[in-house]
Design a protein around this nucleic acid. Structure first.
Lengths: 203, 203
DNA sequence: TGTACATCAGTGAACGCGCGTTCACTGATGTAC
DNA sequence: TGTACATCAGTGAACGCGCGTTCACTGATGTAC
């Protein structure tokens, strides 16, 4: 076809992105230890030497996966906020639902992009990507900041609350993980927690 | 000396516990991937085959490390609560400081014991150990539950808030990680967040 | 349009490495008598 | 108290495995002319 959009690889077509997607699947299927260059190559159906043409080693692939993870994470937040009513309260609740949805549907990726990793070179790059997600949260929190108050308090409180609940829920600390739970599931719980926060009237 | 307290190993003295301690150090020094049976053995100074007499494989050592991690975590909570004034507000604040201290001083261990691991057989065992820590938090939260209200709301809110803040702080999301930060560091921040919660008067 | 050529993504064999695990062994410890 | 013995923690060699990485190669693609 045309080649004006992106440089098309000659044989596979889109091996780099395919390897990233395969890596995410391996991560969710078998945890961090299951993410290897050879397994990614096998999942895509190429030889184990092929990834070397697209990534400068395993660390580089991991970084690409984490970047893609942040992109997906941000799309969860934006999609959730855009779907419902656009008043500030609905936006705030929906963005928190999106946060929790991402964590539940992509638990290993969620763990990867927020993992503490003092040793990793990728931390700084991730900081930039993570900043976009933070910005989405910040602007959604803005209407709830009391006049004259430091907006960081509300932002940090909402983010910590949702993030902590998501992780503790995933770790099974609040009972078995069941995304299909009826009645009072994790989404209702996190909204109930949010309703307890002393937020200013959203304007 | 005497042998009436615990069965003393013949040669090393306390190899099992030494391997657990070495494993925790490796974890903090080099991340999850650095935790191997051979490295633990080398760090303790025994042959790489020695651990097989004390652990049934790497997964067994990891489980022992996670159990020890929960024990240390709980001791942080209890020590922090016991040190300061014993009124309910001080207790609640101090237990949250202990929570954050543990996370900052043992970030990899913190990550391990709260890691989502669907695949691990050790999850159930950890659930039991984690329950003790939850109980400490629950009883400290009890005075702040409004009459007639579900105590789970306060417990979950406090726990999620502190846990989420600890993890986001460690991941560098709130700026560089600096335990020696002057003025308004992570401990002051988490207390400020806590002060915003709509808690009943501690009695 | 056709041909010759440069590019480069993917191949398959090969390498060294650290890993978990096994095995027969050694030798210190603790115990039975 | 002394001796013979059973126990078992730790040793060192060996194994097969999956890993990342390299290398010369192949052959399809895209381009220059």
């Amino acid at each position: 076809m045309t080649q004006n959009t992106a440089p098309k690889p000659h044989h596979h077509g889109d091996l780099r992105n395919s390897l990233i997607r395969a890596g995410i699947e391996l991560l969710e299927e078998g945890g961090r230890a299951a993410l290897t260059l050879r397994k990614c190559a096998a999942k895509v159906g190429v030889s184990h030497a092929a990834p070397a043409h697209h990534f400068n080693g395993l660390a580089d692939l991991k970084q690409a996966i984490a970047n893609e993870g942040f992109r997906i994470f941000q799309s969860y937040l934006l999609d959730a906020r855009a779907k419902g009513p656009q008043d500030p309260h609905s936006q705030l609740k929906n963005i928190c639902r999106g946060y929790l949805s991402f964590a539940i549907e992509n638990p290993a990726l969620f763990g990867l992009i927020f993992s503490y990793n003092r040793l990793s070179e990728l931390q700084r790059s991730l900081d930039d990507k993570g900043q976009f997600a933070y910005d989405v949260l910040r602007e959604t929190c803005a209407p709830f900041v009391r006049i004259g108050a430091d907006p960081v308090i509300v932002e940090t409180q909402v983010w910590s609350l949702v993030h902590g609940y998501a992780q503790l829920y995933l770790s099974g600390r609040f009972g078995p993980v069941d995304p299909d739970a009826q009645n009072f599931g994790p989404f209702e719980t996190v909204i109930a927690l949010l309703d307890q926060l002393p937020l200013a009237n959203g304007t």
